[in-house]
Nucleic acid binder design. Structure first.
Lengths: 240, 240
DNA sequence: ACGTCGTGTAACAGCGCGTAACGGCGGCCC
DNA sequence: GGGCCGCCGTTACGCGCTGTTACACGACGT
């Protein structure tokens, strides 16, 4: 495992523009003064952590793209989310000794590790951090609930549309184009996340393309008609 | 709205046995020494809070039964969970000024209100509370993720079985029977929570009854063969 | 008594699933 | 470099589960 301690100023080829509304962004810079933050690289396809492994740190995604997977005892798997720059990973394991899910890099990633005991120390000294951490956890809950709403109330094609709009919105907040982007995950991952099968996702993308709402070429996506996309989803997503 | 400040020792007809492993149970008694806890009664069918209302307090369920509903702008509704004694409500709104979902009593409930500013104060003075609150939020995330797994990977009948087992497990932790209980919610609420329609829930319950795994009479449920139920779900639920 | 709401059953329709085949792309070894 | 193979994505087809619709029954409140 490629783990190293290095100055945080270093840039990587995956470096992404700063995000200003990330729940912990401001605190990350503050946290650096209070604890040693380990920079860790995770190559595409590698696990950042796995179900059952000891929980020792929170993980701040500095660059790259990851998915989180919930696992059942009998081998079923459910993608529960995708993480990119500015997102915090591992919060779901707070209060436990071990991780309860997998985190897999879908693209070479740089992770800043925040040792949990040091985070607890910092919570004592930095009042604002207490508010921020709780807010970050609450935001995680809200995000999950929004997807429960999407999955529970929308048919397949609209789920896919909602997914694309959400991705676009998050990329836009990072300063990337919301209209033209590359999917970092395969159809199967999208399908799992949306509680569908990968063929259904394929069909939905093809149909949205036929409607000229989007254009798709393998993993390259262009959103051609965002208002129409939003309309068919009930406009829960705010993009631009 | 029936809101009163009263000694916490008072008993109500809905009083339930204490729960010893609740994330905040111990802190609740501790919190009483640090803040005024308002006891609030919410009658069946009434809202504890609604989407958009100002967020001022966390709500500890002392007695009764509630559901939380996520809402979309175009009127869709998704039940995101059911709460009973020992559960904490409103954590999803931390960091925001207003609630983002509805909380509805399905049965006369007694709620202990913890004013959020006072909770923040207490966080400063009680180190253990910091750990506990974060853990409670994390547990909320884990619960949601387990249901994403259930909904995303199991067919209708097995979702219903998983739902019954989860309910049984939670009731058992409160000291109630896991094999015989009354559903406090209607078929439609179960259906929404499981991303199904109420007729499908009805069918599933009838079929599980025909298999003699359970017996159902309106809202009265008996679990006749818990091992079989667990088997058809992949044993993610631990009951007894 | 009446109306309303929640529930159970049935018949039908349709969305999405399962399987399969095909094609493109990239990695690997020769 | 060329050929092979495996993975990913797309599309087609038939079917099954689930949604839809409809109706009947019972509980409950008015």
């Amino acid at each position: 495992m490629d783990t190293s301690i290095a100055p945080l100023a270093a840039q990587t080829r995956n470096a992404q523009p700063p995000r200003h509304d990330a729940p912990l962004e401001l605190d990350i810079t503050q946290l650096q003064r209070h604890m040693i933050v380990t920079r860790r690289k995770v190559r595409a396809g590698q696990y950042l952590y796995r179900n059952g492994q000891p929980f020792r740190a929170l993980h701040f995604v500095h660059a790259g793209f990851l998915k989180t997977c919930e696992l059942s005892e009998d081998g079923r798997e459910q993608v529960t989310g995708f993480r990119m720059h500015g997102d915090l990973l591992g919060v779901e394991s707070i209060g436990l000794g071990a991780h309860t899910c997998d985190a897999v890099a879908l693209d070479d990633a740089e992770i800043w590790e925040l040792p949990y005991p040091l985070v607890l120390d910092a919570l004592q000294r930095i009042p604002e951090l207490r508010v921020r951490l709780a807010a970050a956890l609450a935001e995680e809950i809200r995000r999950d609930r929004v997807w429960m709403l999407v999955i529970g109330t929308l048919p397949a094609e609209q789920r896919v549309a909602a997914f694309l709009l959400d991705l676009a919105s998050r990329l836009a907040r990072l300063g990337f184009s919301a209209r033209h982007f590359i999917l970092r995950m395969g159809r199967a991952d999208i399908a799992s996340f949306l509680a569908l099968k990968h063929e259904t996702v394929s069909r939905a993308l093809s149909h949205l393309e036929k409607l000229e709402y989007i254009s798709v070429l393998r993993r390259e996506v262009k959103l051609l008609d965002i208002p129409k996309l939003r309309a068919c989803v009930g406009t829960p997503c705010t993009v631009q």
